[in-house]
Design a protein around this nucleic acid. Structure first.
Lengths: 327, 327
DNA sequence: CTGTTAGCGCATTCAA
DNA sequence: TTGAATGCGCTAACAG
């Protein structure tokens, strides 16, 4: 492997000057710079980032931990993060926890041992150790979507207004008997959407009882199962809201299997988008879109600020307004 | 940060012994081992992988470069890779080139500078530098899906038999006037599927002319555009084959917009699957499935072998048989 | 503007 | 079984 010393020898300078030529060219005279660059070209030298990291105590690396790489929303968030981070010279390391707190913890320790400079985290549902661990280590961190600690920066979208868009849409369509496949109460996102739903039923003076809301788990299978149950009860609701995209997919499957003509007999609307194929559904679903790309980009920006500005200002939350995509 | 020296001091041993205790516990007496472990626990010591890497010249890191993180097939491949790689103690670094050779090259250099131990590569369509670069550096590499050099290991699926499944299916349905939205000729995958299609038309004695096959680009937009063109011509084909999943999405959209009842007036079948939402299409598409998870896992296995077995046996190709999912 | 020196944290000789 | 010494490749004082 070619090192600074090889370059130094060829260019007849010291290793320190080679280092300067690479990292701070202004500090080197034009002629030596030229000589060094020629040597670098000839030898095909590239700095060993491992050695750099050890010396500078900065790996130019950022962890990105998400619970499901299959989720179109998260993929877009990751794309946004990746774009602004790599533009700033950082390499993101993407980890998929598959919603498992144990995996999350393992990844966290691995990333920490790799001396990441920062972290973008969408915590797993039952994440327990992440928050205290990160707090102790003082690692610059930005949470996305799931706001589980007021001590960290967070980028999320407004679940209350998002749900208001959904309920308002249904109300306008004249649907009054509405039920929701909600999120898990143990997650903030789930709680926020669930509570918003119940409050909205009251605000619109729509019928509400204990079966208006069932607790889901944000998975396709869960959405399917709960929708099947819902459809067993007569009369059907006039509309079902799914608290996230994955459960919406499951619910749609259940509706199809029940032989119901959607949206004639029954309308289905979803919080969050379904990806490229969403518009291919016939008829297409109405849903609420979160600006995922933008959210990812902003999360990365916040992280960059934190990583630069050694200081620790108070944590900030950035809340995006979702938009109704009516079909 | 807590180092071997901190542990050494607390346990009243040398740093070397601490290192042994961590990496090779058998080489340390039971009592000192116990003392060291206690100290490790008390201090919360974890080895600095950066320093380890510098010393051992191995980063326990593997690059995974793919052209599109949005593609459900690739996501599954990545999942497969990730699973077996992380089980073996490696951390994958995922990079999305968005089908851009320039991005691919940048990532490659970055990963090389980070001293990755190996690489799983799904090259961008016009990838030029990757092969010579990797060959020169001698980095253990496994290609997936796109077999662009006989000098490297490769995991792919059998495009010829996959297409045979598709054409055979249509033939059985009595469709004789078939056209295909093909892949780009400049990619191996595209060429293989295109040629297979033409050969199959002949084998089944189906009508074939210069408009039987149009060259696509494997994108949603491209598939849409070409399908629109196809549908302008009278009479319509009885069936359209899309050479990949993304173009299939576009084609389906075009068919819908043309007001054609699918599959009554026109059948559409696709090479590769459409992800979780595929089965929600009404009616569902018939497609050919590649064992993506398995392919990823096997690619990782091959890579592990290469990384361990310093030697360089001849490159191997692993070809998977796709399966027809008939709807 | 340039060179000398030292050390980041660790694993690995080589002796003991 | 253990310790002392060394160097992985680089950058950052500090001198000159």
């Amino acid at each position: 492997m070619v090192t600074v010393y090889d370059v130094a020898r060829l260019a007849k300078v010291s290793s320190a000057t080679v280092s300067r030529a690479v990292n701070n060219p202004e500090a080197v005279s034009d002629e030596t710079l030229a000589r060094i660059n020629k040597a670098i070209g000839k030898l095909g030298y590239a700095p060993n980032r491992i050695a750099q990291s050890l010396k500078t105590r900065s790996s130019a690396t950022v962890g990105v931990i998400i619970p499901d790489i299959t989720n179109p929303f998260l993929v877009k968030v990751v794309k946004g993060v990746e774009k602004t981070l790599s533009a700033a010279g950082y390499t993101p390391i993407l980890c998929d926890t598959e919603e498992s707190p144990e995996k999350e913890e393992r990844y966290l320790h691995d990333l920490l041992a790799r001396r990441i400079d920062g972290l973008v985290l969408v915590p797993a549902m039952d994440s327990q150790v992440a928050v205290p661990l990160l707090k102790k280590r003082g690692l610059p961190t930005v949470f996305v979507d799931r706001f589980i600690s007021p001590d960290f920066d967070c980028v999320k979208s407004n679940n209350v207004s998002g749900l208001a868009l959904l309920v308002g849409h249904l109300f306008q369509q004249g649907r009054t008997h509405i039920r929701m496949i909600g999120g898990p109460q143990r997650t903030v996102v789930g709680r926020e959407r669930n509570e918003a739903f119940l409050a909205l039923l009251d605000r619109y003076r729509l019928p509400r009882n204990e079966s208006s809301l069932v607790q889901g788990d944000f998975t396709i299978e869960g959405g399917y199962r709960l929708a099947v149950e819902m459809l067993k009860v007569r009369p059907h609701p006039q509309a079902i809201i799914s608290a996230n995209n994955l459960m919406g997919i499951g619910a749609l499957k259940a509706i199809r299997e029940a032989g119901l003509r959607f949206p004639d007999n029954l309308d289905l609307v979803v919080f969050d988008e379904l990806g490229d194929m969403g518009e291919l559904l016939d008829p297409p679903l109405t849903f609420v879109r979160q600006p995922a790309l933008e959210m990812g980009a902003q999360a990365a920006e916040m992280l960059l600020e934190r990583m630069r500005g050694g200081g620790m200002p108070t944590p900030r939350s950035l809340v995006f307004e979702p938009a109704l995509v009516s079909r």
